[in-house]
């Protein structure tokens, strides 16, 4: 077992985990934050995307032990109370989701993108979400949602 300290959505956790446990397993099973999804488990679909020290990563490819001392943000950490994060609100308003399974990861990738580049072009938006598959929407409304979020957040 390995002792680790994690900060998830500003909440500190001290955990003892088996070395082979992934960050995704810890988030979902040990912390009960099931908003982060497991799609392929191989880093090919992006459903498990979270931010680690501000960077989008596939939490299925990271050992929990490797995340020791890191700041993690999951989809549950975006809204403040009842107020949705502007990216979440844009996905709601522009129909950027259907089944919702890719949505948490997609929103986290969008957040990583807009944090770095508040005024992305359409091509940059597409580049920013290449690691996230969506099978329902055909991406059109997701791209519209991210564009709208960028505008609402002050990027122009």
């Amino acid at each position: 077992m390995k002792e680790i300290n994690l900060t998830v959505n500003n909440q500190p956790y001290r955990l003892s985990v088996p070395p082979r446990r992934t960050l995704l397993e810890v988030i979902r099973e040990d912390l009960g934050l099931t908003g982060t999804k497991e799609g392929c488990g191989l880093g090919e679909c992006g459903a498990c995307t979270v931010l680690m020290d501000g960077q989008a990563i596939n939490s299925c490819l990271v050992l929990a032990a490797e995340a020791d001392g890191k700041q993690i943000t999951t989809v549950e950490g975006l809204a403040s109370g009842d107020k949705l994060h502007p990216i979440q609100q844009a996905f709601v308003d522009h129909g950027g989701l259907q089944c919702g399974f890719c949505t948490p990861g997609m929103i986290m990738s969008a957040k990583a993108l807009l944090d770095k580049n508040p005024t992305p072009t359409e091509e940059e938006i597409k580049q920013g979400i290449t690691g996230n598959l969506c099978r329902c929407t055909g991406y059109t409304k997701i791209i519209e949602s991210i564009k709208a979020a960028a505008e609402n957040m002050g990027g122009k």
């Binding site: 908003g35 497991e38 989809v75 949705l84 996905f91 308003d93 919702g100 399974f101 948490p104």
Partner: peptide, 17 residues
């Protein structure tokens, strides 16, 4: 908007797993 949009964008929508 979808009636289930809020649950889905906040990660509160529960799937079988």
């Amino acid at each position: 908007p979808r009636v289930d949009a809020w649950e889905k964008v906040t990660g509160q929508a529960k799937y079988a797993a």
